[in-house]
Design a protein around this nucleic acid. Structure first.
Lengths: 151, 151
DNA sequence: TATTGTTATACTCTATAACTATA
DNA sequence: TATAGTTATAGAGTATAACAATA
């Protein structure tokens, strides 16, 4: 076999089965976590935009639209809603008069933190139901999931 | 401490940290997998309804709405769109004249299979980049993720 | 009367096209 | 002329309220 030297790079039947099972498991748990959303005052769209600002820091509307994979007019609207709620603020770009800079307000930051605490609480309540060796598996799995997500 | 007898059922600080990391990892990977969606002819809403019919078999519109956590009028609309595309069919309930039965057509089943193959392919291509012991961790993690999702 | 499903209507999120202001 | 952002407008998805048909 000419694959002898790069076996680890080929796709085996076991890989295919694992990828199917993993995809289903991850999607299911993500759906469950998403359903645990508590703060009904904000849509998922708005929460996502807020989360992007937290992850990346202050951004222009176009950059934010890019991160959220949304067109600029859609982000214009989302920003306006978040601004009306006092969760983000806008300032002028220091040198380019066309651009604006959108940043999280203290209220926005607090809301994100509260939302995250509530979600973590749901999962935290379930983890003690697992066996110690199962918790160990999850701990080992997290960095692998992260790497897959980034690739 | 009165918790001595049920330590495994209490929430430790390590649990809280793990739950935060796990939530982020799962949500990230789910987002990445979702972005791998290829068939642009169907919205996520429509794909999800189709998937429900595959998982649970033929359902009435109300049952389907329940599974998708959507109100009956919304499902009426979704079913109409899927029916227009030939992906589902409707038949009368054998005994209850009020109810309808919605079922996947052969075309709907084929579309789901093709979509799943594409997603699995993306993940399968990445798994060989992992070390054997990392693959073992993922294999062990899948049933745990499933149990968490169901609880 | 209660249940199943649809129709009528309205709100949110998204998009494309056209416009304004600045570079 | 090109870029950043907004406004105008339309389509899809969702909801509640009201209605029709059946149990």
């Amino acid at each position: 076999m000419s694959y002898a030297n790069d076996m680890p790079k080929s796709t085996t039947r076991a890989d295919t089965e694992l990828s199917g099972a993993l995809r289903i498991g991850v999607m299911r748990l993500a759906r469950r976590l998403r359903a645990e959303r508590t703060d009904a005052s904000l849509s998922l769209t708005q929460m996502a935009a807020l989360g992007s600002l937290e992850r990346h820091g202050p951004l222009s509307p176009s950059e934010l639209a890019g991160h959220e994979r949304v067109r600029p007019p859609s982000m214009t609207r989302t920003i306006a809603l978040l601004e009306a709620k006092g969760l983000v603020g806008r300032t002028a770009h220091p040198t380019d008069g066309r651009q604006a800079i959108v940043a999280l307000s203290a209220e926005g930051r607090a809301l994100l933190a509260a939302d995250r605490r509530r979600r973590d609480a749901w999962l935290s309540r379930r983890l003690p139901e697992l066996e110690p060796d199962e918790l160990e598996v999850l701990r080992a799995a997290v960095p692998i999931l992260d790497r897959l997500a980034q690739s």
